[in-house]
Write a protein that binds this DNA or RNA. Structure first.
Length: 404
DNA sequence: TCTGGGGTCCTAGGACCC
DNA sequence: TCTGGGGTCCTAGGACCC
């Protein structure tokens, strides 16, 4: 029996949801109806387009470009800032509505879900369900979605990406040739800006061209990835809808600095603030890190990262910060002006699965207690209510707030 | 007032062991 | 005129996604 999969994609999610929040707060203008974008903050050197209204799209404004470029294309563009809490709220509303249709929902991102409807059709058809969901989301939640219908996740996702907004598309096996193969290769999921030109040079220009290319040749050139894009071009995808939330594999926090830094002491202060956020989130998940990773971006946008194993798995701020400092010191030798710094913990394991070690020291327990006290104070009184001595003047450099 | 931040997965090379 | 080979761990970098 063929699986019955839906992919639900919120149209211009960040902008639509911000529009609803504004209307809810009594504002008269619906920013979905004017040339508008949700953007970063140019004064913080993060001025890019995160979402755009249809009117802005008509001017040629693209997600990811700078607000500066967007304004050139669209001189009367209005820029608004978004809010993660708002996004979370509407994302949850959508999820709860979808739960009325099936338990098997994968929250692929904050604004996308896969639904496995195979055992939940009860005599109805997939298209009927899709129509009902679309209508209910619009009427009950106030925003629109695109829905893709297919027999696997890949095709459902490709289908939801066809004409927008507020549309339902099917992409069944017998439609692949007419609906998907004529599209340019860059439209294929997982085929990005680096691979498209390489295929172009091989005279592979459409998804159909890729589908008809010799699979073994692609594997020879691109390895596993070659197999993947060949299978996707042919509409092959056996992956399941992952409806059980998995443990994270890494947790990170990075920040673009308001000005380039070249003093390691300044970088260390920012690093401490980042590590505090990261380890706080790590402790919330009841996991321990085995590796610490530090990322830097120079003013010329050159990225590099270094990592080191911890002597034993931990979630202590102090241990992880000390390791991060060690990594930073080793990697930051040529004093290039630094635009961005990030800290990430990797190789996470469940805390209760860690073997008890002879090396577990009293020091660890002590650090754990300190972290717990600080976590509790932070939750009660807000971030930065208490801070370690080293961080006292980093707020002059950057103010790092938790995401949620 | 150009260019975010959070992730996952894969590859390739070196170290090290048997 | 030789100089294995397999396996695992670790690290750096890169590709992709939203």
């Amino acid at each position: 029996m063929e699986r019955q999969i839906l992919h639900i994609d919120v149209n211009n999610a960040f902008l639509s949801w911000t529009a609803l929040e504004k209307l809810d707060n009594g504002e008269k203008i619906d920013i979905r109806e004017i040339p508008a974008v949700i953007g970063g903050d140019e004064s913080k050197r993060s001025g890019i387009v995160l979402a755009k209204s249809m009117k802005a799209k008509e001017c040629g404004v693209a997600t990811g470009e700078t607000l500066y470029q967007a304004r050139i294309k669209c001189p009367n563009l209005q820029v608004f800032s978004g809010n993660f809490k708002t996004y979370r709220k509407y994302s949850d509303k959508l999820y709860n509505l979808l739960l009325e249709y099936t338990d098997i929902i994968e929250r692929y991102s904050i604004d996308e879900c896969f639904l496995d409807m195979t055992n939940f059709l009860a005599g109805s058809s997939l298209i009927k369900k899709a129509n009902e969901i679309s209508k209910r989301v619009k009427e009950e939640l106030g925003f629109t979605v695109n829905i893709g219908l297919a027999n696997n996740k890949l095709l459902a996702k490709m289908a939801s990406d066809f004409e927008k907004p507020d549309k339902i598309h099917t992409l069944f096996k017998n439609e692949i040739e007419t609906k998907m193969w004529p599209l340019p290769i860059k439209d294929l999921f997982m085929l990005g800006r680096k691979t498209a030109p390489k295929l172009y040079n091989m005279n592979i220009k459409t998804i159909g061209d890729l589908a008809k290319t010799d699979k073994n040749l692609l594997i020879k050139i691109f390895g596993k990835y070659g197999r993947l894009i060949w299978e996707y071009a042919n509409g092959i995808d056996e992956s399941d809808v992952k409806y059980i939330k998995e443990d994270p594999k890494s947790i990170g926090n990075s920040v673009t600095l308001p000005r380039d830094l070249r003093q390691i002491e300044e970088l260390e202060e920012v690093l401490l603030a980042l590590v505090e956020q990261v380890t706080y989130r790590l402790r919330k998940t009841k996991m321990l890190a085995t590796t610490v990773n530090v990322q830097l971006r120079t003013k010329d946008f050159e990225d590099f990262s270094h990592q080191k194993k911890l002597p034993m798995p931990t979630s202590n701020t102090k241990d992880i910060y000390n390791k991060a400092k060690e990594v930073l010191k080793e990697m930051y030798k040529d004093k290039l002006p630094i635009r961005l710094i990030g800290a990430r913990v990797d190789g996470l394991i469940k805390k209760n699965e860690m073997q008890l070690s002879l090396f577990d020291s009293k020091g660890d327990e002590k650090q754990e207690k300190i972290d717990n006290i600080i976590d509790n104070l932070n939750e009660k009184y807000g971030y930065n209510s208490i801070t370690r001595a080293g961080k006292l003047n980093i707020n002059d450099i950057v103010n790092i707030k938790p995401k949620e």
